[in-house]
């Protein structure tokens, strides 16, 4: 063909294989995706502030539920909201501000410790459970039996056995709490267990433990994140519910649940006493939930780009 408007090009096979896009980094993409959402960043900052105050403020105030220094000073009871007492004082003359932060600290600790233990055990057991058909036969029966009894009932009975207290509560919540996470992970593992890339790995002689840690768990990162983001607020709610019912923590440990229980009596006369712990609880739970959800979304590579 003789046409000056066209010219021959040579194809370079090497150039055709090159990838133009910059190299991809998983964690960089996760953080980019996470910080893109402004509302979550605000809630994250709020959460950091809440955690710091909850850890530091009770140390400064020296609040102790077993010791009410103002109990014999009637003028200190039911003080209104002021600069000195931001949430006023309660029926025994304690600053509600101090009580709320002490309770929040307990709730956060319970939430994080329980979620941490339950997720760790749940993920490890669930991964093996989903992989081995022999283990599945036994575990599914164990799960069926235990999950048919309400969780709150099991925790209550365990608490009556162990006695009330902070570590007893955590033990009671963790003893069977990991089962639902394990079951969830087991189902997820089963979904991706028989995909071709896992067959490829077994054709290469990859042992099961590495198959789980390199082929399965990285895929489950975002569902594990989702699970944690639900687990922390759920553990906090359980603690508050149990303490509200008077069976969770003992009187020596400050608790939002017991506060809500006590202050509910003054709901008509001094509603701010009731709303202070309830709104703090709501703020903590919602923030944790939203942060967890955004992190879960960000850790799903399908959202990257």
């Amino acid at each position: 063909m003789q046409d000056s408007r066209f010219e021959f090009v040579t194809v370079d096979a090497r150039v055709a294989e090159e990838i133009e896009a910059p190299s991809y980094s998983y964690w960089q993409s996760v953080s980019k995706q996470f910080f893109k959402k402004k509302s979550t960043v605000i809630l994250l900052l709020l959460m950091v502030v809440i955690i710091l105050v909850a850890l530091i403020q009770p140390e400064l105030s020296g609040y102790d539920p077993m010791n009410s220094p103002n109990i014999n000073r009637p003028e200190m009871r039911f003080r209104g909201i002021s600069l000195q007492y931001p949430y006023g004082t309660d029926g025994v003359g304690n600053s509600v501000w101090d009580v709320v932060w002490a309770g929040t600290r307990t709730s956060l600790l319970v939430g994080f410790i329980v979620a941490c233990i339950n997720t760790s055990i749940g993920v490890v057991v669930g991964a093996v459970w989903g992989f081995s058909k022999a283990i599945d036969k036994v575990m599914i029966e164990v799960f069926n039996i235990i999950s048919s009894v309400p969780y709150i009932l099991i925790v209550t009975v365990l608490l009556y056995t162990f006695g009330r207290g902070f570590w007893q509560l955590i033990l009671a919540m963790c003893l069977t709490g990991w089962l639902s996470t394990a079951y969830f992970i087991r189902t997820q593992v089963m979904i991706i267990r028989d995909r071709e890339y896992n067959l490829a790995s077994s054709c290469l002689g990859t042992p099961m433990l590495r198959l789980v840690s390199r082929n399965i768990l990285p895929y489950l990162l975002s569902v594990i994140m989702t699970n944690v983001s639900l687990e922390i607020p759920a553990a906090i709610s359980t603690e508050v519910t149990l303490s509200f019912l008077g069976i969770g923590l003992n009187v020596a440990v400050p608790s939002l649940g017991r506060m809500i229980n006590q202050y509910a009596n003054y709901f008509n006369g001094y509603p701010h006493l009731f709303w202070a712990p309830v709104l703090t609880l709501a703020l903590v739970t919602i923030s944790l939930y939203v942060i967890g959800q955004t992190l879960a979304d960000a850790s799903d590579p399908r959202t990257h780009r």
Partner: peptide, 12 residues
């Protein structure tokens, strides 16, 4: 393997 989309570990 048959499916090049499914036979490689996406996270490696």
């Amino acid at each position: 393997f048959q499916d090049p989309a499914a036979s490689l570990n996406e996270r490696a």
